[in-house]
Design a protein around this nucleic acid. Sequence first.
DNA 1: GGCAACCGTTCTGACCGTGAACGGTCCCGT
DNA 2: ACGGGACCGTTCACGGTCAGAACGGTTGCC
Lengths: 146, 146
Amino acid sequence: MNSVSPLPSSTSFRLGTLGAVATARFTARIAALGLKPKDVGLLTLLRAGGPLSQLEAAKAMGVAPSLVVTVADRLELLGAVRRLRDPGDRRRQQLTLTQQGQALLDRCAGAAHELDAEFTAELDEPERTALDRTLAKLAAAHGLPA
Amino acid sequence: MNSVSPLPSSTSFRLGTLGAVATARFTARIAALGLKPKDVGLLTLLRAGGPLSQLEAAKAMGVAPSLVVTVADRLELLGAVRRLRDPGDRRRQQLTLTQQGQALLDRCAGAAHELDAEFTAELDEPERTALDRTLAKLAAAHGLPA
DNA sequence: GGCAACCGTTCTGACCGTGAACGGTCCCGT
DNA sequence: ACGGGACCGTTCACGGTCAGAACGGTTGCC
């Protein structure tokens, strides 16, 4: 008569809590590289989409343009991105990924895969690949990066 | 020679971003009920684990005890939980779920399932169940609620 | 040549959560 | 009986993250 359905049995709900745990651990790992999650987001975006203006980056990331300033500042300080005024339109700041940025991103990827292994340790191989496949599908369906 | 592996191909990474989207949408929906995500967490905990002290709740949720105060305040104001001093140990505040709380939680469950349907619309049925099954497994493995 | 639209930057403010400090309560040794 | 230490809940001050408004420099259009 009571409890129509135990709430945590919702896929979205589990996705949310698990996602929070995953990002927390990921954040901890990349902190050693001087990076924060949004930084990785921007770097990834730049590698995938070539040079971008900050506004384009903001739209793609779904954040306010003012936030991109902060992120780009930090990344520029790390030598991971270069900022240069578009000669054709001097209002725009072209963000380009440097080789150092590439290298940094690769180390992030390494950390991410370590985390994957640790995080999905209790799954067997077919489950892991099925999960990854499905998540990729969902990500694409919701217009997320890559 | 470049890009060892495109980073967003990490399961953890996708889990993180998708989780963020899911919680954002969930948050928007339950806002109409006057609830925030942590509130739902506490309500769920109370239904599953019976009456709890605030400290126990804090540990189970993985948050600071001071935060539980805020959440319990809001829920008490909504009439969703009752706070009463444990007669056996008057330091403890026993949190119990009221019938209104039950009802509220049921409405949350409804919202969550609507969201599930919407969020996983592009998956076919076997994929959906497989995903849910796997996420449940992961949640359990990481000591998350229920 | 002037005006509106646009991009990036700065700054202010809201929100969320932790950690420290405090009062009330309990337990234990003496 | 009683005093000190541990414990629970509450309050408060603080840090971190992000959005939104305001501003300067730049462009394109009329």
